[in-house]
Design a protein around this nucleic acid. Structure first.
Length: 184
DNA sequence: AGATTGATCCAT
DNA sequence: TGGATCAATCTG
């Protein structure tokens, strides 16, 4: 199967479904230092205006406006003044939702095969706020790609999301998804 | 466990 | 305008 760039229609579907299906897909960066790609192994879903863990739960602001826009667009923000986090916007226009990419496996012979943590992913892939609102469906400087891997549901584990203890009942929703590694 | 770090958001 | 907050990471 040929590698194919994930489309707007792909991302426009329900966020939890898209989040699970992103496991085993590839994040690809074509930047100043060449092309780098990694297999997505951990993500988190942020779903709708009521999700208190989501930045969008406090309504439209300059920062969160992108989450209310078209699917397949990058939402990149700076957290703790130091680290960037990369998300893909999902669902229909007007319904704020996104998926945070938390970990990838580098598929080349890079020094570190597992990039674990959203800040580290952004550091390695050279993702910063200049890529906020980038259309990821164009396959230009940053995109997501299907390489034909089939991931069975039994390989996916769900956990509560990280760092959202303030979110009350929303903090315990099992919307963090992790793909078991090949050797376990 | 504690420090770091600065954009963001909302109340003063 | 000021200050608390923060979808994290590194160093002890």
């Amino acid at each position: 199967m040929a590698h194919s760039v994930l489309t707007r229609a792909y991302f426009r579907r329900p966020t939890v479904l898209v989040a699970r299906s992103l496991l085993g897909k590839y994040l690809v960066r074509n930047g100043e230092s060449g092309v780098l790609s990694g297999r997505i192994v951990e993500v988190e879903a942020y779903v709708g205006p009521r999700d208190r863990a989501s930045h969008a739960s406090r309504g439209r602001t300059k920062r969160t406006e992108v989450m209310f826009g078209p699917a397949g667009v990058a939402y990149v923000y700076l957290v703790y003044g130091m680290y960037h986090c990369f998300n893909v916007v999902t669902e229909r226009i007007g319904y704020p939702a996104a998926i945070l990419v938390r970990a990838v496996e580098i598929d080349s012979s890079a020094p570190t095969p597992l990039i674990d943590g959203p800040g580290r992913v952004c550091r390695v892939f050279q993702i910063d706020r200049s890529l906020d609102r980038l259309d990821l469906t164009l396959g230009q400087s940053l995109w997501l790609e299907d390489r034909g891997e089939r991931v069975s549901d039994s390989k996916i584990a769900a956990f509560p999301r990280i760092g959202v203890d303030y979110a009350g009942k929303w903090a315990v929703k099992p919307w963090r998804f992790r793909l078991q590694r090949a050797n376990g």
